[in-house]
Computed example of a mutant assay.
Amino acid sequence: MIAAVSDDAEVISSSTTDPERFTELYHRYAAEIHRYIASRLGPDTADDLMAETFLQAFRHRHRYDAARAGVRPWLYGIATKLISRQRRSEVRFYKAVARTGVDPAVESPMERATDRLSAEGMRGDIAAALTRLNQGERDVLVLVAAGGLGYEEIAQALGVAVGTVSSRLNRARAKMRAALEAHSG
């Protein structure tokens, strides 16, 4: 992973004189960033925001600080900020999932069928519980669950302290647990 981070930093550095090099980062991270955005706002918005994430990263690549963060958390941070701008859409998305129990971010029909069989009744409750989290708690929880980021990476992506990530995640988990226990109880 350290080799990838230094390689990513080198790609950004060299892209200031050879802009085509930046496409390497797009090919390396676009699918991951797209999945993250789709899990937050649905697949229709994900295409546009994923493209906007990389456009902003390209435009601001001269500001990238290799000593502060790897490219992956930097891209997640940009994506999360764009998602924040779409917050009302995100809340509407989770409310629709809560009403219908259908998550359009699930890609394959097989996954959809498996999910329905195993947890159809819970999806709506999970989505409803997500709408009750504050934005900071929701960002941290989804970055862990959908992005697979660690505490350090989330802290870098959101520009907050690791302790803040930990406390937000603990609060989010407690609220989600309480909501799910209320459903099963």
Rank of each mutant, 00 (worst) to 15 (best):
G121P: 06
A128Y: 07
S15W: 00
E24S: 10
L133F: 05
L41A: 15
K175E: 13
M110C: 10
S166T: 14
G150T: 13
A146P: 04
R61G: 03
R138W: 04
D8V: 07
I126V: 15
A146K: 10
L49R: 02
L49T: 02
G70A: 08
Q56F: 08
I33G: 02
I154E: 03
T131C: 15
P104D: 15
V106D: 08
R59W: 08
R171L: 13
S15R: 01
D139N: 13
S6I: 06
G70E: 06
V102K: 12
I154D: 05
L180H: 05
E107Q: 13
P73Q: 09
S89Y: 03
A31K: 13
A69G: 02
A38I: 05
D8E: 04
P104R: 12
T131S: 14
A182L: 11
E137Y: 04
R99M: 11
N170C: 11
A96R: 15
R87L: 06
P43S: 14
Y36R: 04
F58M: 04
Y26E: 12
K95T: 10
R138D: 07
R138V: 07
I78Q: 01
R123G: 03
V106A: 11
K95E: 15
E20Q: 12
A113R: 14
E107A: 15
E137C: 09
M50D: 08
A3Q: 08
S15P: 00
Y94L: 12
R171G: 03
M176N: 11
D8M: 06
L41M: 09
A46V: 08
S14V: 07
E120H: 15
G42I: 03
Y94Q: 09
E20I: 10
I126C: 04
L55N: 06
S14Q: 12
L82Q: 01
L25H: 04
R138F: 09
Y76E: 01
A3K: 10
A172F: 06
G42T: 06
F22E: 04
F22K: 05
T80H: 02
T80L: 00
Q56H: 10
T16V: 10
D125N: 13
M1T: 11
R61I: 00
Q156E: 14
D115M: 14
L158D: 01
Y151Q: 14
V144N: 07
S14R: 12
A57W: 02
G42C: 07
A79S: 07
A31F: 00
D65C: 04
G124Q: 05
S184E: 13
R92A: 15
A146H: 11
E181W: 08
A31T: 11
A155V: 05
A51K: 09
D139M: 08
I12K: 00
H27C: 01
E20V: 13
A161Y: 01
F58I: 00
S108P: 04
L117D: 12
R112L: 12
R99A: 15
A179N: 10
H34M: 03
R138K: 07
T45C: 03
L141Y: 14
G101E: 06
A129H: 01
D44T: 13
A155R: 03
Q56N: 08
A46C: 08
E137A: 11
